[in-house]
Simulated assay, not measured.
Amino acid sequence: MRDTTSLLPLIVRDLRLERDGRVLLDVPIARIQNRQRNVILGPNGAGKSLFLKTCHGLVPPTSGSIEFTRPASAADNRRKQAMVFQKPVMLRRSVRANFMHALAMAGVGWRERRRIATETMAQFGLSSLADMPARVLSGGEQQRLAIARAASLWPDLLFLDEPTSSLDPTASRQIEDMLEILHERGVTLVLTTHDLGLARRFADVILFFHNGRLVEESNAERFFTAPQTPEAKAFLEHRLFW
């Protein structure tokens, strides 16, 4: 059973990441609210993926803080969040065994692991692939597996880096449908994308990055109809390339 207490909001303050004298991230403040769908936009090299990895704890910042509102242990923080990468990480085993391994690492007992794996595969249309080696699946199938595997752990917060990148329209729609299911479950979603159509349909909040800076954080409808910064306006008019 999922622990329904939430770690969120997540508050990012005065975040800076520097490498070799270069500022890669500069985020004075950002808020990830509970149950919201947050979409990170910006041109290539804007710092979108780096922001995800820093918030998830994979890349330590040079300065600043990334804090959950509800005090919790570091282990609890890790357990209640997950990240799906642009190129999904597939274990050298079957689809079912990918679920079983992830659940075992989370401390779930064998009988419960099997139940959760079976139910999750059924919910996300993966049952027919259960005994196939994960690494022979198509790109769309692997992405669905990666998202479903993360979802099986009932995370409070899920980061996704370009979840529909390089997928055909059908596979992209399947991923979008999965994300809607997770949103309805109460999972807070933070994802990067270059797909403005997906962002318009899906986002509650837009975080817009340019040159490593969080330039604009806005309600999605306002962002697309009346962007508040020149950089965001140029981006939406396809005039911002770097």
Rank of each mutant, 00 (worst) to 15 (best):
V95T: 05
H183M: 03
L91Q: 13
W242E: 15
Q123F: 03
Q174N: 14
L15S: 10
T188R: 10
R19M: 11
D76P: 00
T170R: 13
R200M: 11
L15W: 08
S49Q: 05
I29G: 13
V39R: 00
N38C: 07
D14R: 11
Q36G: 04
L189Q: 09
I147L: 10
D177Y: 07
E67R: 14
P88G: 11
I66S: 01
T192G: 05
N34W: 12
A130K: 04
F124M: 07
S49M: 00
T193F: 01
M83A: 12
V108W: 02
Q86Y: 07
L182I: 10
P227R: 06
L126R: 03
D131F: 08
K48I: 02
M90R: 02
E216F: 09
R144N: 09
A102D: 01
Q123P: 13
A106F: 02
S138E: 02
D3R: 01
Q142S: 03
R96L: 12
D161P: 00
L126N: 07
R173P: 00
T69E: 15
L58H: 03
E184V: 15
H194Q: 13
P230D: 05
S65M: 08
F68M: 04
S128H: 15
Q174Y: 08
C55Y: 06
L24Y: 10
L189I: 14
L179K: 07
P61L: 08
I116R: 03
A30C: 10
P71N: 08
A106E: 04
Q143K: 12
R239W: 00
L179A: 02
S49T: 09
R222C: 06
Q123C: 11
A226M: 08
R92E: 14
V95E: 02
T54M: 05
E216L: 07
T69S: 15
L129H: 14
S63Q: 15
L25C: 07
T5I: 13
K87T: 15
A82E: 09
R114S: 12
E231C: 03
T192H: 05
L158T: 00
V136W: 13
V205H: 10
E18H: 09
T69G: 03
F224M: 06
S63E: 14
L214Y: 11
E184W: 11
H101Y: 15
I175F: 10
R37V: 07
S152Y: 00
T170N: 13
A220M: 11
T164D: 10
T5L: 14
Q81F: 08
M105G: 06
T225S: 13
E141W: 04
M1T: 07
I29T: 15
L24P: 05
D3L: 00
A30Q: 06
A72G: 06
P227Q: 04
L153R: 13
A232Y: 13
L179C: 07
Q143N: 03
A151E: 08
S152N: 01
L15H: 08
S94N: 04
P230K: 09
D177H: 10
Q86T: 02
L8N: 02
V190Y: 11
V190K: 12
V108C: 02
A102Y: 02
A82K: 09
I175G: 10
L91P: 14
E217R: 10
R78E: 05
Q81C: 03
F223E: 01
